[in-house]
């Protein structure tokens, strides 16, 4: 038992500092991926709601593709395919040799693309849930389109979308564990490294599970507060 405490402590043989640092990277990676996903998701949602056929089809293909293939495959494809594409591109602009995709950028991009596909559906659903009367009222008040979007639609959109976005965030957090396969030393990878070095996998996977659970629980609370804040004007 005391051995386990030594392994998980801050001493010279302890992995606590390394695990906490890796948990921090997991958080940063998830946040960056989620933010990028919000951008992709918003673009795709705009595409899905577009009056034209082509953007609708493209956005739908994007959603179907990245929600349909396992995230592990998406990550591997980006990691290996991304480097090939990047090397090809840099040859075009005159940089010789191999160009590697940095793992953090690959991880962020992978999480961004995957979570964007899910965020698109959340945002689209929220947009459709807004009462048509709101648009009509804004038009009746002769509000310019930008004001309509930022002052009337966006706040309501956020309120309706927040629970769904909270779900996607949890998905992102757990997807970040899969980024370990491309060698980025986030929480999961750090646990694997510690397990390999000490041959005590059980201890370190349990520790990793506890840290993931902690991050997930705290973010659940944050989202709940955000939901309450965004619906403070609503009559219950």
């Amino acid at each position: 038992m005391s051995e386990i405490f030594a392994l998980l402590g801050f001493g010279p043989e302890g992995w606590a500092a390394a695990l906490l640092l890796a948990a921090g990277l997991t958080l940063v990676l998830s946040l960056a991926g989620f933010a990028l996903g919000a951008l992709f998701g918003a673009c795709a949602a705009a595409g899905r709601l577009s009056p034209w056929r082509l953007p609708r089809l493209l956005a739908q293909a994007y959603g179907t593709l990245f929600r349909g293939i396992p995230d592990l495959l998406t990550i591997y494809l980006l990691y290996f395919g991304g480097s090939v594409a990047l090397t090809g591109f840099s040859h075009l602009v005159g940089i010789e040799g191999f160009v590697g995709m940095p793992t953090f950028a690959t991880g962020t991009l992978a999480i961004g693309i995957i979570s964007g596909a899910y965020q698109c559906e959340v945002l689209r659903g929220a947009y459709l849930a807004i009462d048509k009367g709101q648009f009509e009222a804004a038009r009746a008040l002769a509000l310019p389109p930008w004001i309509t979007l930022s002052r009337v639609i966006a706040p309501q959109l956020l309120r309706v979308a927040l629970p769904g976005l909270g779900n996607v965030w949890q998905l992102v957090l757990k997807d970040s564990a899969l980024i370990s396969v491309i060698g980025l030393v986030e929480l999961m990878r750090q646990a694997q490294i510690a397990a390999g070095a000490t041959r005590e996998p059980f201890v370190f996977y349990t520790a990793a599970a506890a840290l993931y659970f902690l991050i997930a629980s705290v973010s659940t609370r944050v989202f709940r507060h955000a939901e309450e804040w965004s619906s403070r004007g609503m009559v219950r």
Binding site: L86, S90, G97, V99, G100, M101, P102
Partner: peptide, 15 residues
């Protein structure tokens, strides 16, 4: 965006 990616990408020794 491509510029940013390229700037952070690591060119590796070659040939």
């Amino acid at each position: 965006a491509l510029g940013v990616v390229l700037a952070t990408a690591v060119p590796v020794a070659h040939a």
